[in-house]
Design a binder for these strands. Structure first.
Lengths: 257, 257
DNA sequence: TAGCATTGTGTCATAACGACGCATTCGATG
DNA sequence: CATCGAATGCGTCGTTATGACACAATGCTA
Protein backbone atom coordinates (compact mmCIF):
# COMPACT_ATOMS: atom_id res chain seq x y z
CA UNK A 1 0.00 0.00 0.00
CA UNK A 2 1.24 3.44 -0.89
CA UNK A 3 1.90 5.49 2.26
CA UNK A 4 -0.61 8.18 3.10
CA UNK A 5 2.05 10.80 2.85
CA UNK A 6 1.79 10.56 -0.93
CA UNK A 7 -1.89 11.35 -0.67
CA UNK A 8 -1.20 14.51 1.30
CA UNK A 9 1.49 15.49 -1.14
CA UNK A 10 -0.85 15.03 -4.07
CA UNK A 11 -3.47 17.14 -2.37
CA UNK A 12 -0.92 19.83 -1.77
CA UNK A 13 0.93 19.83 -5.07
CA UNK A 14 -1.76 18.75 -7.50
CA UNK A 15 -2.18 22.15 -9.02
CA UNK A 16 1.40 22.16 -10.16
CA UNK A 17 1.58 18.70 -11.65
CA UNK A 18 -1.87 17.92 -13.10
CA UNK A 19 -3.92 19.28 -15.94
CA UNK A 20 -6.36 21.60 -14.20
CA UNK A 21 -10.00 20.65 -13.66
CA UNK A 22 -9.61 17.40 -15.56
CA UNK A 23 -10.00 13.90 -14.25
CA UNK A 24 -10.67 10.46 -15.60
CA UNK A 25 -12.63 7.54 -14.22
CA UNK A 26 -12.31 3.91 -15.19
CA UNK A 27 -15.11 1.39 -15.32
CA UNK A 28 -13.18 -1.85 -15.08
CA UNK A 29 -15.26 -4.85 -16.07
CA UNK A 30 -14.45 -8.41 -15.14
CA UNK A 31 -16.30 -11.69 -15.42
CA UNK A 32 -16.36 -14.22 -12.62
CA UNK A 33 -18.66 -17.05 -11.64
CA UNK A 34 -21.05 -16.13 -14.41
CA UNK A 35 -21.42 -12.60 -13.13
CA UNK A 36 -20.30 -9.30 -14.59
CA UNK A 37 -18.19 -7.44 -12.06
CA UNK A 38 -16.86 -3.93 -11.69
CA UNK A 39 -13.80 -2.92 -9.73
CA UNK A 40 -14.58 -0.20 -7.19
CA UNK A 41 -12.59 1.62 -4.55
CA UNK A 42 -13.64 2.76 -1.11
CA UNK A 43 -12.57 6.33 -0.50
CA UNK A 44 -11.36 7.17 2.95
CA UNK A 45 -13.11 10.49 2.74
CA UNK A 46 -16.55 9.30 1.72
CA UNK A 47 -19.02 6.62 2.67
CA UNK A 48 -19.82 5.62 -0.88
CA UNK A 49 -17.74 3.47 -3.14
CA UNK A 50 -16.30 5.06 -6.24
CA UNK A 51 -14.87 4.28 -9.65
CA UNK A 52 -11.10 4.21 -9.68
CA UNK A 53 -9.92 7.42 -11.26
CA UNK A 54 -7.12 9.85 -11.41
CA UNK A 55 -5.71 13.00 -12.83
CA UNK A 56 -3.66 13.71 -15.91
CA UNK A 57 -0.09 14.88 -15.60
CA UNK A 58 0.67 18.08 -17.43
CA UNK A 59 2.83 16.32 -20.02
CA UNK A 60 0.87 13.10 -20.19
CA UNK A 61 -1.48 11.93 -22.95
CA UNK A 62 -5.02 11.40 -21.74
CA UNK A 63 -5.01 7.77 -22.88
CA UNK A 64 -1.69 7.18 -21.17
CA UNK A 65 -3.13 8.51 -17.94
CA UNK A 66 -6.00 6.05 -18.18
CA UNK A 67 -3.58 3.22 -18.85
CA UNK A 68 -1.56 4.28 -15.85
CA UNK A 69 -4.56 4.37 -13.53
CA UNK A 70 -5.57 0.94 -14.70
CA UNK A 71 -2.13 -0.47 -14.20
CA UNK A 72 -2.03 0.96 -10.70
CA UNK A 73 -5.38 -0.51 -9.69
CA UNK A 74 -5.16 -3.88 -11.38
CA UNK A 75 -1.50 -4.58 -12.04
CA UNK A 76 -2.39 -5.31 -15.64
CA UNK A 77 -0.52 -3.69 -18.44
CA UNK A 78 -1.85 -4.62 -21.81
CA UNK A 79 -5.59 -4.37 -21.65
CA UNK A 80 -8.58 -3.32 -23.62
CA UNK A 81 -9.24 0.25 -22.64
CA UNK A 82 -11.58 2.64 -24.34
CA UNK A 83 -12.77 6.15 -23.81
CA UNK A 84 -16.55 6.27 -23.98
CA UNK A 85 -17.89 9.59 -22.73
CA UNK A 86 -17.08 12.93 -21.16
CA UNK A 87 -19.09 14.07 -18.19
CA UNK A 88 -19.19 17.82 -18.12
CA UNK A 89 -22.15 19.06 -16.13
CA UNK A 90 -21.29 22.23 -14.30
CA UNK A 91 -22.56 20.83 -11.01
CA UNK A 92 -21.34 17.25 -11.28
CA UNK A 93 -18.41 17.58 -8.91
CA UNK A 94 -19.22 18.27 -5.32
CA UNK A 95 -15.91 18.07 -3.62
CA UNK A 96 -17.21 20.09 -0.71
CA UNK A 97 -18.39 16.85 0.82
CA UNK A 98 -14.86 15.76 0.30
CA UNK A 99 -13.57 18.83 1.99
CA UNK A 100 -15.36 18.24 5.25
CA UNK A 101 -14.40 14.60 5.16
CA UNK A 102 -10.78 15.47 4.50
CA UNK A 103 -10.98 17.65 7.56
CA UNK A 104 -11.97 14.66 9.68
CA UNK A 105 -8.96 12.96 8.18
CA UNK A 106 -6.81 15.78 9.47
CA UNK A 107 -6.24 17.43 6.12
CA UNK A 108 -7.29 21.02 5.80
CA UNK A 109 -7.74 22.68 2.42
CA UNK A 110 -8.68 26.25 1.62
CA UNK A 111 -11.78 27.35 -0.28
CA UNK A 112 -9.73 28.00 -3.42
CA UNK A 113 -8.00 24.66 -3.35
CA UNK A 114 -7.68 23.03 -6.80
CA UNK A 115 -9.67 19.99 -5.69
CA UNK A 116 -12.74 22.09 -4.98
CA UNK A 117 -12.86 23.52 -8.48
CA UNK A 118 -15.26 22.24 -11.07
CA UNK A 119 -13.99 19.08 -12.77
CA UNK A 120 -14.67 17.53 -16.14
CA UNK A 121 -14.13 13.82 -16.18
CA UNK A 122 -13.45 11.46 -19.06
CA UNK A 123 -14.93 8.00 -18.72
CA UNK A 124 -12.95 4.96 -19.82
CA UNK A 125 -14.04 1.39 -19.72
CA UNK A 126 -11.75 -1.58 -19.54
CA UNK A 127 -12.24 -5.28 -20.06
CA UNK A 128 -9.92 -7.40 -18.00
CA UNK A 129 -9.41 -11.03 -17.15
CA UNK A 130 -10.75 -11.37 -13.65
CA UNK A 131 -8.15 -13.82 -12.42
CA UNK A 132 -5.23 -11.67 -13.50
CA UNK A 133 -6.25 -8.65 -11.48
CA UNK A 134 -4.53 -7.76 -8.25
CA UNK A 135 -6.94 -5.24 -6.81
CA UNK A 136 -4.89 -2.43 -5.26
CA UNK A 137 -6.33 0.61 -3.48
CA UNK A 138 -4.83 3.96 -4.32
CA UNK A 139 -3.49 6.47 -1.84
CA UNK A 140 -6.89 8.05 -1.29
CA UNK A 141 -8.80 4.86 -0.66
CA UNK A 142 -8.90 2.17 1.95
CA UNK A 143 -10.22 -0.70 -0.10
CA UNK A 144 -10.50 -1.92 -3.67
CA UNK A 145 -12.64 -4.86 -4.68
CA UNK A 146 -14.95 -6.38 -7.24
CA UNK A 147 -18.67 -5.69 -7.12
CA UNK A 148 -21.41 -7.53 -8.86
CA UNK A 149 -22.94 -5.25 -11.44
CA UNK A 150 -26.40 -5.84 -10.01
CA UNK A 151 -25.51 -5.04 -6.43
CA UNK A 152 -24.49 -1.46 -7.10
CA UNK A 153 -27.08 1.11 -6.15
CA UNK A 154 -25.35 4.28 -5.22
CA UNK A 155 -21.85 5.48 -5.87
CA UNK A 156 -19.74 8.51 -5.14
CA UNK A 157 -20.91 11.66 -6.96
CA UNK A 158 -22.16 10.82 -10.46
CA UNK A 159 -20.20 7.60 -10.74
CA UNK A 160 -23.34 5.51 -10.97
CA UNK A 161 -24.34 7.41 -14.10
CA UNK A 162 -20.86 6.91 -15.49
CA UNK A 163 -21.13 3.19 -14.82
CA UNK A 164 -24.53 2.99 -16.51
CA UNK A 165 -23.25 4.81 -19.54
CA UNK A 166 -20.31 2.43 -19.73
CA UNK A 167 -22.69 -0.51 -19.67
CA UNK A 168 -24.78 0.99 -22.44
CA UNK A 169 -21.68 1.51 -24.52
CA UNK A 170 -20.50 -2.01 -23.88
CA UNK A 171 -23.83 -3.36 -25.06
CA UNK A 172 -23.66 -1.34 -28.24
CA UNK A 173 -20.10 -2.39 -28.96
CA UNK A 174 -20.90 -6.01 -28.38
CA UNK A 175 -22.16 -6.24 -31.92
CA UNK A 176 -19.01 -4.70 -33.34
CA UNK A 177 -16.26 -6.12 -31.21
CA UNK A 178 -15.38 -9.69 -30.31
CA UNK A 179 -15.47 -8.79 -26.68
CA UNK A 180 -15.03 -12.15 -25.05
CA UNK A 181 -11.31 -12.22 -25.64
CA UNK A 182 -10.56 -9.65 -22.98
CA UNK A 183 -12.90 -10.91 -20.30
CA UNK A 184 -12.39 -14.64 -20.44
CA UNK A 185 -9.38 -16.79 -19.68
CA UNK A 186 -7.43 -18.09 -22.64
CA UNK A 187 -9.36 -21.33 -22.68
CA UNK A 188 -13.07 -21.27 -22.12
CA UNK A 189 -16.21 -23.21 -22.98
CA UNK A 190 -19.04 -22.18 -25.23
CA UNK A 191 -21.52 -22.07 -22.31
CA UNK A 192 -19.16 -19.72 -20.50
CA UNK A 193 -18.94 -17.43 -23.51
CA UNK A 194 -22.70 -17.50 -23.81
CA UNK A 195 -23.16 -16.65 -20.14
CA UNK A 196 -20.91 -13.67 -20.67
CA UNK A 197 -23.05 -12.40 -23.50
CA UNK A 198 -26.23 -13.09 -21.59
CA UNK A 199 -24.94 -11.21 -18.60
CA UNK A 200 -23.88 -8.19 -20.58
CA UNK A 201 -27.07 -8.08 -22.61
CA UNK A 202 -29.20 -9.03 -19.63
CA UNK A 203 -31.24 -11.53 -21.58
CA UNK A 204 -31.19 -15.24 -22.27
CA UNK A 205 -30.06 -16.56 -25.61
CA UNK A 206 -30.76 -19.81 -27.35
CA UNK A 207 -27.88 -22.17 -26.75
CA UNK A 208 -27.80 -23.64 -30.26
CA UNK A 209 -28.29 -20.44 -32.17
CA UNK A 210 -25.62 -18.76 -30.10
CA UNK A 211 -23.13 -21.46 -30.93
CA UNK A 212 -23.97 -21.36 -34.61
CA UNK A 213 -23.54 -17.61 -34.83
CA UNK A 214 -20.44 -17.50 -32.72
CA UNK A 215 -18.66 -20.15 -34.74
CA UNK A 216 -19.78 -18.53 -37.98
CA UNK A 217 -17.64 -15.52 -37.12
CA UNK A 218 -14.68 -17.80 -37.54
CA UNK A 219 -12.69 -16.28 -34.72
CA UNK A 220 -12.78 -19.29 -32.41
CA UNK A 221 -10.60 -22.35 -32.34
CA UNK A 222 -12.08 -25.48 -30.82
CA UNK A 223 -9.44 -27.32 -28.85
CA UNK A 224 -9.22 -31.07 -28.46
CA UNK A 225 -9.61 -30.84 -24.70
CA UNK A 226 -12.81 -30.73 -22.74
CA UNK A 227 -13.59 -29.29 -19.33
CA UNK A 228 -14.14 -32.29 -17.08
CA UNK A 229 -15.56 -32.26 -13.61
CA UNK A 230 -18.68 -30.34 -14.34
CA UNK A 231 -21.05 -33.04 -13.15
CA UNK A 232 -22.40 -33.38 -16.68
CA UNK A 233 -21.29 -33.81 -20.22
CA UNK A 234 -17.89 -32.19 -20.65
CA UNK A 235 -17.98 -29.16 -22.96
CA UNK A 236 -15.20 -28.46 -25.43
CA UNK A 237 -12.66 -25.80 -24.68
CA UNK A 238 -12.21 -22.93 -27.10
CA UNK A 239 -9.70 -20.19 -27.58
CA UNK A 240 -9.60 -17.19 -29.86
CA UNK A 241 -7.85 -17.44 -33.20
CA UNK A 242 -5.84 -14.27 -32.86
CA UNK A 243 -5.18 -13.82 -36.56
CA UNK A 244 -8.82 -13.93 -37.50
CA UNK A 245 -9.78 -12.17 -34.30
CA UNK A 246 -7.76 -9.08 -35.18
CA UNK A 247 -9.16 -9.12 -38.66
CA UNK A 248 -12.67 -9.22 -37.26
CA UNK A 249 -11.85 -6.35 -34.91
CA UNK A 250 -11.29 -4.09 -37.88
CA UNK A 251 -14.33 -5.08 -39.85
CA UNK A 252 -16.82 -5.42 -37.04
CA UNK A 253 -18.78 -8.52 -36.26
CA UNK A 254 -22.14 -7.44 -37.51
CA UNK A 255 -23.98 -9.35 -34.87
CA UNK A 256 -27.53 -9.05 -33.73
CA UNK A 257 -28.76 -10.82 -30.63
CA UNK B 1 -19.71 40.44 -37.57
CA UNK B 2 -18.74 40.72 -33.94
CA UNK B 3 -16.23 43.56 -33.43
CA UNK B 4 -12.63 42.58 -32.96
CA UNK B 5 -12.60 44.21 -29.58
CA UNK B 6 -14.47 41.25 -28.19
CA UNK B 7 -11.74 39.00 -29.51
CA UNK B 8 -9.08 40.99 -27.70
CA UNK B 9 -11.16 40.95 -24.55
CA UNK B 10 -11.57 37.21 -24.70
CA UNK B 11 -7.87 36.78 -25.19
CA UNK B 12 -7.21 38.97 -22.19
CA UNK B 13 -9.86 37.72 -19.81
CA UNK B 14 -10.23 34.10 -20.84
CA UNK B 15 -8.49 32.73 -17.80
CA UNK B 16 -11.06 34.26 -15.54
CA UNK B 17 -14.19 33.20 -17.37
CA UNK B 18 -13.46 29.81 -18.97
CA UNK B 19 -12.78 26.36 -17.68
CA UNK B 20 -9.01 26.07 -17.91
CA UNK B 21 -7.32 24.05 -20.65
CA UNK B 22 -10.61 22.82 -22.02
CA UNK B 23 -12.09 23.49 -25.42
CA UNK B 24 -14.66 21.96 -27.70
CA UNK B 25 -14.82 21.65 -31.46
CA UNK B 26 -17.89 21.08 -33.58
CA UNK B 27 -18.04 19.08 -36.76
CA UNK B 28 -21.18 20.49 -38.35
CA UNK B 29 -22.48 18.33 -41.15
CA UNK B 30 -24.86 19.49 -43.82
CA UNK B 31 -26.13 18.00 -47.05
CA UNK B 32 -26.42 20.03 -50.22
CA UNK B 33 -26.53 19.17 -53.91
CA UNK B 34 -25.91 15.53 -53.13
CA UNK B 35 -22.74 16.32 -51.28
CA UNK B 36 -21.89 16.02 -47.61
CA UNK B 37 -20.60 19.33 -46.33
CA UNK B 38 -18.83 20.56 -43.23
CA UNK B 39 -18.94 24.07 -41.86
CA UNK B 40 -15.45 25.49 -41.36
CA UNK B 41 -14.08 28.82 -40.23
CA UNK B 42 -11.05 30.71 -41.45
CA UNK B 43 -9.00 31.94 -38.53
CA UNK B 44 -7.44 35.34 -38.88
CA UNK B 45 -4.33 34.09 -37.17
CA UNK B 46 -3.68 31.02 -39.27
CA UNK B 47 -3.60 30.04 -42.91
CA UNK B 48 -5.54 26.84 -42.44
CA UNK B 49 -9.25 26.50 -42.00
CA UNK B 50 -10.53 25.16 -38.72
CA UNK B 51 -13.50 23.54 -37.06
CA UNK B 52 -15.71 26.01 -35.25
CA UNK B 53 -14.99 25.67 -31.58
CA UNK B 54 -15.03 27.48 -28.33
CA UNK B 55 -14.42 27.39 -24.64
CA UNK B 56 -16.61 26.45 -21.73
CA UNK B 57 -17.72 29.07 -19.25
CA UNK B 58 -16.93 28.27 -15.67
CA UNK B 59 -20.57 27.74 -14.76
CA UNK B 60 -21.68 26.24 -18.06
CA UNK B 61 -22.47 22.61 -18.82
CA UNK B 62 -20.23 21.14 -21.47
CA UNK B 63 -23.20 20.23 -23.67
CA UNK B 64 -24.63 23.71 -23.26
CA UNK B 65 -21.37 25.20 -24.43
CA UNK B 66 -21.50 23.07 -27.57
CA UNK B 67 -25.07 24.12 -28.19
CA UNK B 68 -24.06 27.73 -27.77
CA UNK B 69 -21.16 27.47 -30.20
CA UNK B 70 -23.44 25.85 -32.72
CA UNK B 71 -26.09 28.51 -32.31
CA UNK B 72 -23.49 31.21 -32.78
CA UNK B 73 -22.08 29.71 -35.97
CA UNK B 74 -25.29 28.53 -37.61
CA UNK B 75 -28.14 30.45 -36.05
CA UNK B 76 -29.86 27.16 -35.39
CA UNK B 77 -31.21 26.33 -31.99
CA UNK B 78 -32.70 22.91 -31.82
CA UNK B 79 -30.36 20.53 -33.56
CA UNK B 80 -28.92 17.10 -33.35
CA UNK B 81 -25.69 17.45 -31.46
CA UNK B 82 -23.60 14.69 -30.05
CA UNK B 83 -20.33 14.36 -28.26
CA UNK B 84 -18.18 11.73 -29.94
CA UNK B 85 -14.61 11.82 -28.68
CA UNK B 86 -12.09 13.60 -26.50
CA UNK B 87 -8.75 14.51 -27.96
CA UNK B 88 -6.17 14.57 -25.25
CA UNK B 89 -2.70 14.12 -26.66
CA UNK B 90 -0.19 16.10 -24.70
CA UNK B 91 1.21 17.69 -27.83
CA UNK B 92 -1.98 18.26 -29.80
CA UNK B 93 -2.26 21.97 -29.20
CA UNK B 94 0.39 24.12 -30.69
CA UNK B 95 -0.78 27.60 -30.01
CA UNK B 96 2.70 28.95 -30.47
CA UNK B 97 1.96 29.24 -34.15
CA UNK B 98 -1.02 31.19 -32.98
CA UNK B 99 1.11 33.37 -30.84
CA UNK B 100 3.33 34.59 -33.61
CA UNK B 101 0.32 35.10 -35.82
CA UNK B 102 -1.46 37.04 -33.12
CA UNK B 103 1.61 39.23 -32.98
CA UNK B 104 1.19 40.08 -36.64
CA UNK B 105 -2.36 40.94 -35.76
CA UNK B 106 -1.08 43.38 -33.18
CA UNK B 107 -1.94 41.29 -30.17
CA UNK B 108 0.88 40.41 -27.85
CA UNK B 109 0.59 37.62 -25.28
CA UNK B 110 3.12 36.47 -22.75
CA UNK B 111 4.66 33.00 -22.57
CA UNK B 112 2.40 32.01 -19.67
CA UNK B 113 -0.76 33.16 -21.33
CA UNK B 114 -3.69 30.77 -20.83
CA UNK B 115 -4.07 30.23 -24.56
CA UNK B 116 -0.59 28.77 -24.81
CA UNK B 117 -1.25 26.07 -22.24
CA UNK B 118 -2.02 22.51 -23.18
CA UNK B 119 -5.67 22.03 -24.16
CA UNK B 120 -7.94 19.03 -24.12
CA UNK B 121 -10.75 19.30 -26.63
CA UNK B 122 -14.10 17.55 -26.77
CA UNK B 123 -15.39 16.76 -30.24
CA UNK B 124 -19.08 17.21 -31.02
CA UNK B 125 -20.77 16.50 -34.26
CA UNK B 126 -23.97 18.11 -35.43
CA UNK B 127 -26.41 17.32 -38.20
CA UNK B 128 -28.14 20.38 -39.56
CA UNK B 129 -30.41 21.28 -42.39
CA UNK B 130 -28.20 23.02 -44.88
CA UNK B 131 -30.71 25.62 -46.00
CA UNK B 132 -31.45 26.78 -42.47
CA UNK B 133 -27.89 27.66 -41.65
CA UNK B 134 -26.68 31.24 -41.59
CA UNK B 135 -22.94 30.76 -41.54
CA UNK B 136 -21.49 33.31 -39.16
CA UNK B 137 -17.77 33.75 -38.39
CA UNK B 138 -16.80 34.18 -34.76
CA UNK B 139 -14.67 36.97 -33.38
CA UNK B 140 -11.43 35.16 -34.10
CA UNK B 141 -12.17 34.31 -37.70
CA UNK B 142 -12.65 36.14 -40.93
CA UNK B 143 -14.80 33.69 -42.80
CA UNK B 144 -17.21 30.80 -42.22
CA UNK B 145 -18.43 28.58 -45.01
CA UNK B 146 -19.38 25.10 -46.11
CA UNK B 147 -16.76 22.74 -47.49
CA UNK B 148 -17.30 19.60 -49.43
CA UNK B 149 -16.15 16.68 -47.30
CA UNK B 150 -13.89 15.45 -50.09
CA UNK B 151 -12.13 18.74 -50.66
CA UNK B 152 -10.64 18.99 -47.21
CA UNK B 153 -6.99 18.01 -47.00
CA UNK B 154 -5.42 19.93 -44.19
CA UNK B 155 -6.91 21.76 -41.28
CA UNK B 156 -5.73 23.74 -38.31
CA UNK B 157 -3.86 21.69 -35.71
CA UNK B 158 -5.40 18.22 -35.37
CA UNK B 159 -8.80 19.25 -36.70
CA UNK B 160 -8.53 16.95 -39.70
CA UNK B 161 -8.22 13.99 -37.35
CA UNK B 162 -11.19 15.23 -35.40
CA UNK B 163 -13.19 15.50 -38.60
CA UNK B 164 -12.22 11.99 -39.67
CA UNK B 165 -13.20 10.59 -36.31
CA UNK B 166 -16.55 12.35 -36.55
CA UNK B 167 -17.14 10.78 -39.95
CA UNK B 168 -16.29 7.33 -38.62
CA UNK B 169 -18.71 7.84 -35.76
CA UNK B 170 -21.42 9.06 -38.09
CA UNK B 171 -21.02 5.93 -40.22
CA UNK B 172 -21.30 3.70 -37.18
CA UNK B 173 -24.35 5.51 -35.88
CA UNK B 174 -26.04 5.35 -39.24
CA UNK B 175 -27.20 1.86 -38.40
CA UNK B 176 -28.65 2.91 -35.08
CA UNK B 177 -30.11 6.31 -35.73
CA UNK B 178 -32.56 7.49 -38.39
CA UNK B 179 -30.13 10.18 -39.40
CA UNK B 180 -31.85 11.65 -42.42
CA UNK B 181 -34.27 13.65 -40.35
CA UNK B 182 -31.69 16.17 -39.28
CA UNK B 183 -29.92 16.62 -42.58
CA UNK B 184 -32.77 16.79 -45.05
CA UNK B 185 -35.54 19.31 -45.51
CA UNK B 186 -38.93 18.36 -44.17
CA UNK B 187 -40.03 17.00 -47.51
CA UNK B 188 -37.62 14.95 -49.55
CA UNK B 189 -37.58 12.21 -52.15
CA UNK B 190 -36.36 8.67 -51.78
CA UNK B 191 -33.46 9.21 -54.21
CA UNK B 192 -32.36 12.18 -52.11
CA UNK B 193 -32.41 10.12 -48.95
CA UNK B 194 -30.48 7.41 -50.72
CA UNK B 195 -27.88 9.87 -51.97
CA UNK B 196 -27.40 11.01 -48.41
CA UNK B 197 -26.73 7.49 -47.24
CA UNK B 198 -24.46 6.80 -50.17
CA UNK B 199 -22.49 9.94 -49.49
CA UNK B 200 -22.03 9.21 -45.83
CA UNK B 201 -21.13 5.58 -46.40
CA UNK B 202 -19.13 6.38 -49.50
CA UNK B 203 -20.59 3.52 -51.47
CA UNK B 204 -23.43 2.98 -53.91
CA UNK B 205 -26.57 1.20 -52.82
CA UNK B 206 -29.18 -0.62 -54.80
CA UNK B 207 -32.09 1.69 -55.42
CA UNK B 208 -34.82 -0.89 -54.90
CA UNK B 209 -33.35 -2.61 -51.88
CA UNK B 210 -32.73 0.74 -50.26
CA UNK B 211 -36.34 1.71 -50.70
CA UNK B 212 -37.57 -1.62 -49.35
CA UNK B 213 -35.41 -1.42 -46.26
CA UNK B 214 -36.10 2.23 -45.60
CA UNK B 215 -39.84 1.84 -45.79
CA UNK B 216 -39.69 -1.31 -43.66
CA UNK B 217 -38.48 0.81 -40.76
CA UNK B 218 -41.89 2.40 -40.84
CA UNK B 219 -40.62 5.85 -39.97
CA UNK B 220 -41.46 7.47 -43.30
CA UNK B 221 -44.70 8.91 -44.54
CA UNK B 222 -45.21 9.01 -48.28
CA UNK B 223 -46.99 12.21 -49.25
CA UNK B 224 -49.44 12.57 -52.08
CA UNK B 225 -47.24 15.13 -53.81
CA UNK B 226 -44.42 14.50 -56.21
CA UNK B 227 -41.37 16.56 -57.05
CA UNK B 228 -41.98 17.83 -60.57
CA UNK B 229 -39.44 19.49 -62.80
CA UNK B 230 -36.72 16.90 -62.50
CA UNK B 231 -36.54 16.18 -66.23
CA UNK B 232 -37.75 12.65 -65.57
CA UNK B 233 -40.42 10.74 -63.78
CA UNK B 234 -41.49 12.68 -60.72
CA UNK B 235 -40.53 10.94 -57.46
CA UNK B 236 -42.83 10.94 -54.47
CA UNK B 237 -42.12 13.23 -51.58
CA UNK B 238 -41.63 11.75 -48.12
CA UNK B 239 -41.45 13.11 -44.63
CA UNK B 240 -40.63 11.52 -41.32
CA UNK B 241 -43.40 10.16 -39.12
CA UNK B 242 -42.25 11.79 -35.93
CA UNK B 243 -44.10 9.48 -33.60
CA UNK B 244 -42.57 6.37 -35.04
CA UNK B 245 -39.31 8.16 -35.65
CA UNK B 246 -38.84 8.89 -31.97
CA UNK B 247 -39.72 5.34 -31.11
CA UNK B 248 -37.13 4.08 -33.56
CA UNK B 249 -34.56 6.44 -32.08
CA UNK B 250 -34.80 4.62 -28.78
CA UNK B 251 -34.70 1.11 -30.12
CA UNK B 252 -32.16 1.55 -32.86
CA UNK B 253 -32.71 0.78 -36.49
CA UNK B 254 -30.68 -2.35 -36.76
CA UNK B 255 -29.64 -1.63 -40.28
CA UNK B 256 -26.85 -3.10 -42.27
CA UNK B 257 -25.85 -1.68 -45.64
C1' DT C 1 -25.83 -49.47 -14.23
C1' DA C 2 -29.79 -46.42 -14.62
C1' DG C 3 -30.96 -41.65 -14.32
C1' DC C 4 -30.43 -36.87 -15.01
C1' DA C 5 -28.65 -32.66 -16.42
C1' DT C 6 -26.03 -30.63 -19.81
C1' DT C 7 -23.73 -30.42 -24.25
C1' DG C 8 -23.17 -31.46 -29.50
C1' DT C 9 -25.50 -31.50 -33.72
C1' DG C 10 -29.23 -31.10 -36.97
C1' DT C 11 -33.86 -29.67 -38.98
C1' DC C 12 -37.45 -26.62 -40.56
C1' DA C 13 -40.22 -22.70 -41.43
C1' DT C 14 -39.84 -17.85 -41.78
C1' DA C 15 -37.68 -13.46 -42.48
C1' DA C 16 -34.04 -10.71 -44.39
C1' DC C 17 -30.95 -9.77 -48.07
C1' DG C 18 -28.78 -9.02 -52.61
C1' DA C 19 -29.33 -8.98 -57.51
C1' DC C 20 -32.14 -7.99 -61.07
C1' DG C 21 -36.59 -7.33 -64.60
C1' DC C 22 -40.19 -4.62 -66.22
C1' DA C 23 -43.63 -1.26 -66.57
C1' DT C 24 -44.61 3.74 -65.61
C1' DT C 25 -43.99 8.58 -65.95
C1' DC C 26 -41.73 12.86 -66.67
C1' DG C 27 -39.29 16.29 -69.69
C1' DA C 28 -36.89 16.77 -73.99
C1' DT C 29 -36.84 16.27 -78.93
C1' DG C 30 -38.35 16.60 -83.42
C1' DC D 1 -48.16 15.70 -80.57
C1' DA D 2 -45.87 11.20 -81.00
C1' DT D 3 -41.38 9.36 -79.61
C1' DC D 4 -37.34 8.70 -76.91
C1' DG D 5 -34.22 8.69 -72.95
C1' DA D 6 -33.79 8.55 -68.21
C1' DA D 7 -35.25 8.00 -63.78
C1' DT D 8 -38.77 6.08 -60.73
C1' DG D 9 -42.35 2.54 -58.71
C1' DC D 10 -43.05 -2.04 -57.91
C1' DG D 11 -42.16 -6.84 -58.03
C1' DT D 12 -39.56 -11.56 -58.42
C1' DC D 13 -36.25 -15.11 -57.23
C1' DG D 14 -32.61 -17.59 -55.17
C1' DT D 15 -29.63 -17.44 -51.16
C1' DT D 16 -28.59 -16.61 -46.57
C1' DA D 17 -29.62 -15.51 -41.77
C1' DT D 18 -32.63 -16.13 -38.03
C1' DG D 19 -35.55 -18.15 -34.37
C1' DA D 20 -37.67 -22.25 -32.43
C1' DC D 21 -37.17 -26.78 -31.43
C1' DA D 22 -35.92 -32.22 -31.57
C1' DC D 23 -32.77 -35.79 -30.56
C1' DA D 24 -28.57 -38.11 -29.63
C1' DA D 25 -24.21 -38.16 -26.83
C1' DT D 26 -21.67 -37.61 -22.60
C1' DG D 27 -20.27 -37.37 -17.80
C1' DC D 28 -21.30 -37.50 -13.03
C1' DT D 29 -24.30 -39.48 -9.39
C1' DA D 30 -27.05 -42.57 -6.87
Amino acid sequence: MIPQKTFIEVIADGEGIFQPSLSLDCVIFGFHENELKVLLIKLRTNDNWALPGGFVFKEEDLDDAATRVLKERTGINDIFLQQFHVFGSANRSDWNIHRSNLKKDGIEIGPNHWLLKRFITVGYYALVEFAHVIATPDSSSEDCKWWDINEIDELFMDHKQILDKALDTLRLQLNHLPIGYNLLPQKFTMPELQKLYETILNKTLDRRNFQRKMTSFGILKRLKETRKGGAHRAPFLYSFDMRKYRKALKQGLHGGW
